[in-house]
Amino acid sequence: MKVFLNPGHCPGVDCGAVNNDYEVNEAVIVREVGDLVGDYLRKAGCEVKLLQSDNLAGENPNYPNVCASANNWPADVFISLHCNAASAGQANGTECFVFSHWSASDRLAACIQSQIVNSLGTSDRGVKEGPRLIVLHNTTMPAVLVELAFISNDADCEKLIERKREFAAAIARGITDYIAAERGE
């Protein structure tokens, strides 16, 4: 199985969401989690490519094109990693986005969502449709955008900082659960 990992945003260009109280940003956290997910998946026998770029679908030619890279490889599954944020500090939890429900992407997202929520005890915000999200719209394989937790919520932010390895292991287990189910194992 070929898994394409896309940690969101791009350090030094677009840091994504920020928690100034904890002095952390989304781009760095998701890169660290993505590297760990890649390590777990390689150990499980998957082929992995990881690309963090400020060019999702050709809008910034100064950086590698994420969607084209995944499509041209071609990946079997695509995972984009993010940290959520909200102006309301009480917003918390994990959610996954897919292009549409009742699809292979939806099944993949359900596996990842379940593993994160059950392993880390984050609030279950569910699997949602996000057809306008570039990485879901412009990829040709089952694709999921994972919002690990809210960087803007102190309790979630602490999990993002202190439990990166657990997030990564949960995501990797979700992916391998999906692979096993698709293969009928």
Rank of each mutant, 00 (worst) to 15 (best):
N153P: 03
V146E: 02
F150K: 06
A181N: 09
S114F: 09
R183E: 15
P131R: 11
N118W: 03
L136S: 06
H82Q: 11
H101L: 14
A172S: 13
R132D: 15
V33N: 04
V37Q: 02
V117R: 01
A70Q: 04
L41Y: 10
S119W: 05
N72H: 12
L41T: 13
Q90A: 13
L136G: 09
G121M: 08
R125P: 04
A143L: 02
S53M: 02
L160K: 01
A104G: 13
G121H: 09
P11A: 03
R125D: 07
V135D: 02
N60Q: 12
A85W: 08
D54I: 00
K43W: 07
T122E: 00
A109H: 01
G121K: 05
I29R: 00
L133R: 09
F78I: 04
L41D: 10
G8K: 01
V37L: 03
T139N: 15
A104V: 04
K164N: 04
L5G: 07
S103C: 05
V48L: 11
G16V: 09
V13C: 05
N92K: 12
E182A: 14
L41W: 11
V24Y: 05
L136T: 07
E129D: 12
I116M: 10
I134A: 13
N60L: 02
N19S: 12
K128C: 10
L120T: 07
P7K: 04
D76L: 03
A68H: 02
P64E: 13
A168W: 03
I112W: 07
N65S: 06
A57H: 12
D177W: 08
A155G: 07
K159S: 07
K159W: 08
H9C: 06
A149L: 02
L41F: 13
A172E: 05
A85L: 01
A17G: 10
G89H: 11
A86C: 11
R165V: 08
S119V: 03
S114C: 10
H82P: 01
G130N: 10
R107M: 11
A44R: 15
D39C: 03
P142F: 13
K2Q: 13
A143K: 02
G121E: 12
E23A: 11
G58R: 04
K49V: 08
Q52E: 12
A27S: 14
L5H: 06
T176C: 10
Q52I: 07
G45L: 06
C111F: 06
K164R: 13
A70E: 04
Y178S: 06
C67H: 02
V24L: 01
E23S: 14
G121R: 08
I151F: 04
Y63G: 06
N25F: 15
E158W: 10
G126C: 05
A110S: 14
L56K: 10
C157F: 09
A57C: 11
L56M: 11
K159L: 14
